[in-house]
Design a protein around this nucleic acid. Structure first.
Lengths: 198, 198
DNA sequence: CCATAACTTGAGGTTCTCCTCAACTTGAGA
DNA sequence: TCTCAAGTTGAGGAGAACCTCAAGTTATGG
């Protein structure tokens, strides 16, 4: 790849990163190009689809989430680990409206590694009595969707309140207050399909 | 108003009701007109803005919610009343993707009556020990936003699971599992502003 | 049955975003 | 320095949704 091409690619990624973070994933591509000081044609040269751009911008996130998961598993207290993991993911969401949009359709079932690790975090928390026995991996989608909605509504107006929403959600996942759940959890397939709807 | 005008108005409302329910509030107006068997011009004659149409379609909902609230207050068990009220609101959301969109920006602070009644429901549940002491009226927005997000994602793919999300949320509102909340609640003004963002 | 106010119609202007491609420019290897 | 593959450009076509308004149609009171 030519030097100027590399340069432009970087400018595009920088611009996209910034605009996505501030306004979510549906910023007009032309605006990204303009903000990068590059023509719309160049943007399409480097990133043939919006998804390609989004993927490039958030390429690092999967690793970040995996790292969060590993750190959570390394913690002594399984309950704290569980909370820390979800808090970490939500912090990523709150810090970037683009990732907030993205999380709702990827995080919980992301690839295989992340999914597996998250299963372990849950299992460990459950075993040690910090997590109610009747919640499953797919229920974590509720937390992500819920916080995503709150972040979207409040990020400009009450930037920290999502923590309150998350805290309430976490309290609902503890055994102490558990009441029987009224319907069975989503299957993995249903969860995947639901995320496609976002 | 002329007889045919009344008739067309009704056809428009019927069509809008159906399309909103099925696909949410952002159905193209032209599609509503077409589905009502009427021209786009007529639609604009009757409803100069989208909001006017939305308001007409969901005019009854405010009363329904008030009625839900009154019924909740009439229940013997304050905790059950509280749960029944939120469940009722969420049932309205799940039954109609249009109202699901709308609820996120009106329900909690709707007018004055609904707001006041909801405050009473909360207060009563708190007094009787069924609701943790540190949640406020504005926190109810989290429940509505959260369930709205889940409904939107799952309604076509796992129609009942929102009940599971709601059950977990309600458990988080009980005193049993309460841990100190990390940040203060939204002010009424912040809540109102956040709803405008939807 | 007539006059007319009320109503309906839909083509078309506007705006927005997406995406393409023919013409031009430039970096870098020979 | 020269050549040309690699890269850039931006006007403009396509499509979706919004909204208007001049021309035509129809209900209704007299």
């Amino acid at each position: 790849m030519r030097k100027d091409a590399v340069h432009n690619r970087e400018r595009l990624l920088r611009a996209a990163r910034e605009l996505f973070a501030d306004r979510g994933l549906d910023v007009p591509l032309e605006e990204i190009a303009r903000s990068a000081g590059v023509s719309i044609g160049t943007l399409y040269n480097r990133f043939p689809t919006r998804d390609a751009l989004v993927e490039a911008v958030f390429a690092d996130r999967a690793a970040t989430v995996t790292e969060l998961a590993e750190r959570a598993l390394a913690m002594d207290d399984a309950g704290e680990g569980f909370a820390a993991f979800l808090t970490g993911v939500c912090e990523l969401q709150a810090a970037d409206l683009g990732y907030n949009d993205l999380a709702a359709r990827t995080v919980t079932v992301d690839g295989d590694r992340g999914f597996g690790l998250m299963g372990q975090i849950l299992e460990r928390a459950r075993r040690s009595g910090h997590l109610r026995g009747d919640v499953t991996l797919t229920d974590m989608a509720f937390v992500v969707w819920g916080v995503a909605a709150t972040v979207k509504a409040t990020s400009k107006v009450a930037p920290g309140v999502w923590r309150r929403h998350l805290a309430l959600a976490l309290d609902g996942l503890r055994p102490a207050a558990a009441r029987p759940l009224p319907v069975p959890p989503m299957s993995t397939e249903q969860t995947r399909a639901a995320m496609r709807e976002c």
